[in-house]
Write a protein that binds this DNA or RNA. Structure first.
Lengths: 183, 183
DNA sequence: TATTATTTTCAGAAATTTCTGAAATATATG
DNA sequence: CATATATTTCAGAAATTTCTGAAAATAATA
């Protein structure tokens, strides 16, 4: 497996971006490689294409599996595991967002609830700030849940509304006053 | 400056989350501390509260400034810099999203356009995948731009639509067919 | 200008993460 | 069962990031 210059550059870019995305270079590169490969690849092919060690490939694939970002595939008469990304890009994005939410948002929501449970600590400002933060995370989380449920077609339609977007919101009926924006 | 147990725990939590958010522990802690402090703090106060070195504080504050996440404040007869977070939590979230988009999405969009510019490389599948990815990022980016423009009040209303959400999209007029979902 | 106060820079130390090679484990086949 | 194939684990090496202390730079005041 040798990469074309185009593949090479794409893969290296995702390796660099890996840092910013909270995954390491190798994991980024493996995912990029799978993403642009028509056929599923086995660990040895990945290892060779990326010039990394076999064990590094193994760990990277495990990490990608924990993110639910790769699919396993098997071929008749070949007992090696072959890996691919879902064909549907929207599915990939949904998974990515769900996993990032789980890792980056949910633990904080849990922590904030936990701290509030411990009861007032006489630290009025800090407590108010934390409550405000928790409420905002809850609001955004419930919005996420609603968007998550939408079929891709509706999601695409929503995203292409453009200037109609704001007026559409205004047309919708009133909402519960308790959830209105704080001053 | 000594922290209350509540503050302590909140600050430590944000330090831990820092990793997952692509900022380091210290930066996370500094931000958390400023977030729950009623008054603006100077570098020495932060240094003492977090038990870190003065230089680390300096670098952390610089990093937070590059994220546009802190405000500078000055007091009469005191030439030290005092730092705060915006009172408006929505503003903080908007800034955070804008900066993350800039760091995590925009470079890839640029790279994809650059690779497409280089013209067809005979690598049909990879090229198609990259085009698909670019188009999806562009769609999401334009949606982001629309949401970004909304006043907070409308944003909150949108987020509280709940079950009305899906039907609202359906009620909107048809969109340009060229931007419909790909099979 | 000299002095003091404040902040930044930066080389290297410390800590952490990433990666490798070798060994261990697991699984299939003759 | 013995052998071959495939994958995982893991200790330590390598690379990278984070943090510190000391020095330098910046800026106000006497």
């Amino acid at each position: 497996m040798t990469l074309t210059p185009l593949q090479q550059e794409f893969v290296l870019h995702f390796g660099e971006m890996g840092n910013r995305w909270g995954i390491n270079r190798t994991v980024g590169q493996i995912y990029a490689l799978l993403f642009i490969s028509r056929e599923a690849l086995n660990a040895d092919q990945i290892t060779e294409a990326l010039s990394i060690s076999r064990s590094n490939t193994s760990m990277g694939l495990k990490e990608l599996q924990s993110w639910k970002l790769v699919r396993l595939k098997h071929y008749q008469g070949d007992r090696r595991d072959y890996f691919t990304t879902p064909d549907d890009l929207w599915e990939i994005v949904r998974t990515l967002i769900a996993e990032r939410k789980k890792r980056e948002i949910d633990p904080t929501l849990t922590k904030l609830r936990e701290l509030e449970m411990q009861g007032p600590a006489g630290d009025h400002y800090a407590e108010a700030r934390m409550t405000e933060l928790r409420e905002l995370i809850e609001l955004m989380t419930s919005f996420y849940d609603d968007m998550e449920k939408l079929e891709t077609e509706r999601l695409v339609k929503l995203m292409t509304l453009g200037s109609k977007f704001a007026s559409l919101i205004d047309k919708a009926g009133a909402v519960m006053p308790s959830l209105k924006q704080r001053s």
